[in-house]
Design a protein around this nucleic acid. Structure first.
Lengths: 255, 255
DNA sequence: TATGCGCATTTCATTATTTGCAACGGCATT
DNA sequence: AATGCCGTTGCAAATAATGAAATGCGCATA
């Protein structure tokens, strides 16, 4: 295991769970020696990615993380460009809307606007959602590079609910349908009782770089809602793409 | 030089400068061997902190950075709590307002609201500003732990303009004055023609964790403005502290 | 179309860093 | 006073990182 891999997994452990973590706890969870863990943390502290409370000796993520994220946002203003569109879509539909960005590990939820309704779908900011079990994932797969799609299809398809698509053949059909319609639908594949509609945000090269999705309790979705929401979410996705890259290229033809 | 130090400096290089960087360029700037640089990047890519354009082979910061920042914000919602207060202060004063957070390297600018006026002060998001040359820095020093203050005072005090306080004795006086008044002032210490007023945001233990500042062109500041802005910025800082930690503790007495 | 240049990538023996055990001291609870 | 847990540090062993060189690729120039 490379040293940077260890350091990064420490960062991820600090990010998940409690706001602050003790050294021994961290070492146990990571499976590293106490001494090793501490030395890695010291290196990370020197660069501001981790901070330590002077009195309690607990560790937490540092402001250097925020700095890197701000620098990234300055170079590629995904959130700044997408946020108004997401807000408009949430206002238009009255349902929970979330925005996600592609990463090797899955789709990262980077913005969420929750519905004002009492019965609403709740998504956690920063969560990584699986490609095969969500509307967003399927929308993404439908418009990503062959190589990435094959990677997901070849991998395991763990079931999160009894409704999760765990069969590769069926998943391929869903992806093909999403490609044909320009948006995808998901039905309780990740969380029970939730219906979603999603569309891909396309990059300059025509491949998906993220997705935008509407999520609503199943009981609130009636005949025709899916189609209406599908059109809305696809329009929002296209607008985000245009705001980021100017006029959108034609979608890449999948082989 | 530790391996994680090298990896982190690559991240910082990717964050500064052009949105995408070539391997050779990165290796040159960092002073690492091409092979070394690439292996570090591969490790970072595996964790989503870096991405590589498949066709151009250029590297950029990845979505994993945003994920870590979101997880941090979920644990410690500094921006979410402070943002409305910063906006209100900007609306009240009509001048540029910026918010910063402490980090080992200096104060990190995490939010900026620029004045609507044509002649305005512009601050770069994500920038790290020096402690001794800005109103924010002096406000922070006035309310931080002895140890951190001594560290800055002991270090070099580089001059950014002819007005930068480069003398340790004078700096100590400014810090003492800021401590007495509850807010600090800065006059062209970092950028020519800019006057600033700043106040510390205090943590649960009474020590500063960040600052909020008003920055305006020197020509626009008239008699009385400094005092008025000082009161406003101090009130805003206090409100942010209260939103984060509940009722504010008394300020720590510096020895 | 041919040629040369710069770049990214891979290999492998050498080197240096990281590692984990163990011991120490501090702190709080028993 | 004693016990247990934690954070910290030293040191020899082990492992991972290193850099020079070779390979192959793409691009621009001849």
């Amino acid at each position: 295991m490379s040293t940077v891999a260890k350091a990064v997994s420490l960062l991820e452990m600090l990010g998940s769970g409690a706001p602050e973590t003790a050294l021994a706890d961290l070492a146990r969870r990571a499976g590293f020696d106490k001494a090793t863990t501490r030395r890695l943390l010291v290196s990370l502290i020197a660069h501001g990615l981790v901070e330590q409370d002077e009195t309690t000796r607990l560790y937490r993520l540092g402001a250097g993380i925020a700095r890197l994220a701000l620098m990234r946002e300055a170079q590629f203003p995904f959130l700044r460009m997408a946020a108004p569109v997401v807000e408009a879509l949430a206002a238009e539909t009255g349902e929970t809307v979330h925005l996600s960005e592609y990463s090797k590990r899955g789709l990262i939820t980077v913005q969420v606007i929750e519905s004002a309704k009492a019965n609403r779908v709740s998504v956690q900011l920063g969560d990584v959602v699986p490609m095969h079990a969500t509307a967003s994932g399927i929308a993404f797969l439908a418009f990503t590079e062959e190589r990435i799609r094959e990677g997901v299809l070849a991998g395991p398809l763990p079931a999160f609910t009894p409704h999760t698509i765990a069969d590769m053949e069926i998943l391929v059909e869903h992806v093909a349908a999403a490609r044909a319609r320009g948006h995808s639908t998901g039905s309780q594949g990740y969380e029970e009782g939730v219906l979603s509609v999603a569309a891909p945000i396309l990059g300059a090269d025509g491949f998906a770089i993220g997705t935008i999705a509407i999520a609503a309790p199943r009981v609130r979705i009636h005949k025709g809602d899916i189609e209406r929401h599908g059109a809305s979410v696809a329009a929002a996705a296209r607008e985000i793409g245009e705001r980021l890259f100017g006029r959108q290229p034609g979608q890449k033809r999948a082989s």
